[in-house]
């Protein structure tokens, strides 16, 4: 059985650890170079099922600002990023909006909510 070594650059935090993930038969058998639990989890995911946090803006009606920044609660599968963006493009919310309010629940059935990154008052 061949082992594969994947060089992974962690993006979990700005330290930016670089390390390696060793895969055999589709499973992670060894990891080196990552300095925290979060990094280990990221690196394993990155080889098997890469995920990313998604941030964008949605339109706001009647607010002090025309756009509301929104953020995924958790990372979403990398290949669903554009689908999430497309979904959020069509969303319009009514001011006022409270920070952390759910803007889109269970986006695309991925089990991830998109929440308001901040509050926006009524104009």
């Amino acid at each position: 059985m061949t082992r594969h070594v994947h060089a992974i650059q962690c993006i979990g935090c700005p330290v930016g650890c670089g390390g390696e993930v060793v895969i055999e038969a589709g499973a992670v058998i060894e990891m080196r170079g990552f300095t925290c639990d979060k990094g280990q989890a990221y690196a394993a995911d990155e080889v098997v099922a890469p995920k990313r946090m998604v941030t964008t803006t949605v339109r706001v009606d009647g607010g002090t600002l025309p756009l509301l920044p929104v953020v995924s609660e958790r990372p979403v599968p990398k290949d669903a990023i554009f689908d999430c963006i497309r979904l959020l493009r069509s969303v319009v919310v009514q001011a006022p909006v409270e920070a952390d309010a759910i803007i889109v629940a269970d986006a695309l059935g991925l089990g991830v909510n998109f929440r308001a990154a901040c509050s926006i008052a009524e104009a």
Binding site: K78, D79, I81, F82, D83, I85, R86, R89
Partner: peptide
């Protein structure tokens, strides 16, 4: 840019 379609799940895999 609304007319410009974003890559879909099938085509976007980096």
């Amino acid at each position: 840019l609304d007319g410009i379609d974003l890559p879909t799940r099938e085509t976007s895999h980096a």
